[in-house]
Amino acid sequence: LKKVVALYDYMPMNANDLQLRKGDEYFILEESNLPWWRARDKNGQEGYIPSNYVTEAE
């Protein structure tokens, strides 16, 4: 899975979204639905995130 790091905080707009915290790492599960990607956080929560809020992890 592709790993990304959040560049900004993101508060979910609806139940399908995943909250982002700046500096945290996330795994990308699906990239087909631009600009929204399906992601999983370190706690196993899954949801959609804005792809322009993250960058690929080193």
Rank of each mutant, 00 (worst) to 15 (best):
P35Q: 15
L29Y: 06
E46C: 06
Q45I: 11
F27K: 03
L34D: 15
E46R: 03
L1N: 06
D41H: 03
E56C: 11
P50Y: 10
K42L: 10
V5F: 08
P35M: 15
D9S: 05
S51Q: 10
K22E: 06
E56Q: 11
A39Y: 01
P12W: 02
N43H: 13
E46Y: 05
Y10W: 14
L34Q: 12
K2R: 14
R40G: 03
M11S: 11
D17M: 14
N14K: 12
D9A: 04
D24I: 06
P12F: 02
N14W: 10
D41T: 04
D9Y: 03
E31A: 12
L18Q: 00
E56M: 13
K3W: 08
D9E: 05
D9W: 03
V54R: 00
E25Y: 15
E46W: 07
L1S: 06
D41I: 01
I28G: 00
N33Q: 10
V5H: 05
K3S: 06
D9G: 03
K22L: 06
F27V: 11
S51N: 06
V5M: 08
E46S: 06
P12D: 02
Y53A: 09
Q45A: 12
A57F: 12
N14V: 06
E56G: 10
L1V: 09
G44R: 04
M11T: 13
A15V: 12
K3T: 09
P50H: 08
Y48E: 04
N52W: 15
L20I: 05
N33K: 12
W37P: 09
R38F: 15
E25S: 10
L29F: 06
F27M: 09
K3V: 12
E31Q: 12
Q45P: 02
Y26Q: 00
S51V: 09
R40P: 01
A15R: 10
R21P: 00
D41G: 05
E58R: 12
E46P: 02
L20Y: 00
N33F: 08
K2P: 05
L18W: 01
V4L: 04
D17H: 15
D24A: 09
D9F: 03
Y26H: 00
S51I: 09
E46K: 03
N33M: 10
N43S: 12
I28K: 02
M11D: 11
G47I: 01
V54P: 01
S51R: 12
N33D: 15
P50A: 04
K42E: 09
E30R: 05
P12I: 04
T55C: 12
R21S: 08
A57V: 15
K2D: 02
E58T: 14
A57Y: 12
V54T: 05
F27W: 15
W37T: 06
N33W: 07
D24Q: 12
L18A: 01
M13N: 11
A15H: 12
L20N: 00
E58N: 13
N16T: 14
E30L: 06
A57G: 10
K22H: 06
P50L: 10
Q19M: 12
S32R: 07
E25R: 05
L7S: 04
R40Q: 08
N52M: 11
G47D: 00
K22C: 08
Y48R: 09
S32G: 13
A39M: 04
L20E: 00
Y26L: 07
T55Y: 10
E46V: 10
T55I: 14
A39P: 00
P50G: 03
S32K: 08
Y48N: 09
L29T: 06
G47L: 02
M13T: 13
N43R: 08
I28T: 02
